[in-house]
């Protein structure tokens, strides 16, 4: 009975591993860029390999082969991020630009520009605000700026 349960669980893990492995390979086939392809391969390198090896280890039971499988899994889990990191660094060093980051850069620039505009208006409001406190030494100049500010606001 428990044997059948273990077999079913190992089937489940093997099926899940095959699914994630295929998903990663399909991403490697379809993605538009080096960096996005790395992202897709990392799926099959962690989830696919992990599920497949776990399924095989459950099917095998406690033996020397389980130790071998765990060693393979540990090596893959350590070497995958190292290879991906080195690849990304080499690609960036060689001048490969990520395609999908372009839109995001433009968008962030637009957002920062609007923030600058909003910040400058805040600064104007703050510079006009301390004139009411009259803590500064030159009250005339502060009143002049306040008058300017009022004139501008009335013009608008």
């Amino acid at each position: 009975m428990s044997d059948q349960i273990l077999t079913i669980v190992s089937w489940l893990f093997l099926g899940l591993g095959s699914f994630f492995y295929l998903v990663g390979a399909f991403g490697l086939f379809r993605m538009p860029d080096v960096f996005t392809r790395m992202h897709a391969v990392s799926v099959s390198d962690t989830l696919g390999v992990g599920f497949l090896i776990t399924g095989m280890a459950i099917e095998t039971g406690w033996s020397l082969n389980t130790a071998r499988l765990i060693i393979i899994l540990a090596i893959m889990l350590y070497s995958g991020p190292i290879a991906t990191h080195a690849l990304a660094q080499a690609a960036l060093h060689a001048g490969v630009k990520p395609k999908l980051a372009d839109n995001r850069l433009k968008k962030s620039r637009r957002i920062s520009a609007t923030r600058e505009i909003a910040g400058s208006s805040n600064i104007q409001a703050k510079s006009s605000a301390p004139t009411k406190s009259r803590s500064r030494t030159a009250r005339k100049s502060s009143s002049a700026t306040r008058g300017k500010g009022r004139g501008q606001s009335s013009k608008r």
Partner: peptide, 18 residues
Amino acid sequence: TVFDRALAANAVGTGAIM
């Protein structure tokens, strides 16, 4: 690019192990 090929070679190595 050559990095695509290196990435694919890495994936082929992983597939060979599995």
